[in-house]
Design a binder for these strands. Structure first.
Lengths: 193, 193
DNA sequence: CTTAAACGAACAATCGTTAGGTTGTTATAC
DNA sequence: GTATAACAACCTAACGATTGTTCGTTTAAG
């Protein structure tokens, strides 16, 4: 039953590494700095990961799978496409405003991975973008969407949400629900009266 | 009159370095790689820059000054606040869709700078955000703006635009004008009919 | 004769990584 | 119950490679 490497410990290690990678960047974070943060010797890290690159991949892959799973649930729900859009926007805004340090890696560090690792994540990202595009296409089919390029719409949305990790502070004056609601309103109806 | 270091050569050097920093990231680009791209020896770079960090700062500072100047022109124009908003959105979208490699540095590599350099840019960025916020406040005063947090609106817009450099290709199916128009439409009136 | 613009060679420091050893705990054999 | 094997979870010490940078020198132009 025991798979060794107790779940708890592993989770703490992952969290610490994600924190460092997110704050300083992958290349600017040395194995020695990671080891120090975990009160370990650099060599000990190789008991948990086979390389520095694998560290980054494992973290990103976890986040990606989680995001993909949740998004799929929203897309497969039995409701109108307009409701789906709003659900999706809401979920996504929350997701990125919440556990930021993991998601910042997905946005910033894709190119820090080698070809093999990157290919895996790009493929998942492709499925991801496809799911979101499908919502826009549904909207277009029911004639609810303006004549806006679906690609532009998709990435305008990604940009809006992904960028939250650069400025948003959960302890600040804007709470997550307001943020999410504002995003939905801006994206669907715009900022002007 | 001749300040040495002919303008042309310097410009080419800056362009090449910006390209490398933008594509691979600051920390992942070595001085040797830069030298090779310029068909120089690593030591020769120190005739033009006193350090690697100064390279990054000079590039970012140039871009920042350029952006700030242009934005100021838009904000000080004599026209309605709604027109200002649209001008600003248009200018900004174009700015980022155009000379992407310089702007990607502004968005991605702020934290790669040491404290002194970063402080200078943060201050300029502060002035920048303030200019944009002032437009939103003007709109609110004339009761054109919805009840949306101005901070959220500002950064929603930044996000939308800054993210273009991650996906937009000028040679693709969407031209810059369409992109800019779509951004303005989404941001002011939303994607739904 | 000066100076701009480069060069080759080397510097100390740091990088990711590995080899091999030392613990403490747990499961099995006697 | 005690010895023994096995293993997880670390360690120390060092490896070769690469990092940003500096040194003193050379070349070309005015």
């Amino acid at each position: 039953m025991n798979q060794g490497k107790s779940k708890q410990k592993i989770e703490q290690i992952h969290r610490t590494i994600a924190h460092l990678f997110a704050r300083k960047g992958f290349h600017a974070t040395s194995m020695r700095a990671i080891a120090q943060a975990l009160e370990m010797q650099p060599a000990s890290l190789y008991y948990y990961f086979k390389s520095k690159e694998e560290m980054l991949f494992v973290l990103m892959n976890e986040s990606m799978d989680e995001a993909l799973e949740k998004l799929k649930a929203v897309c497969e729900a039995d409701c109108s496409s307009e409701q789906k859009l709003k659900d999706m926007l809401g979920f996504y805004a929350r997701f990125f405003a919440g556990d930021q340090e993991r998601e910042i890696l997905l946005v910033n560090e894709i190119d820090s991975l080698g070809d093999e690792y990157r290919k895996i994540l790009i493929e998942k990202q492709r499925r991801y973008v496809h799911l979101i595009r499908s919502i826009f296409e549904e909207l277009a089919k029911t004639d609810l969407l303006k004549e806006i390029d679906p690609t532009v719409a998709t990435f305008a949305f990604f940009g809006m949400v992904h960028y939250t990790i650069r400025w948003y502070n959960e302890e600040g004056s804007v709470d997550v629900t307001t943020l999410s609601d504002n995003f939905v309103e801006i994206f669907t109806r715009g900022i002007l009266k």
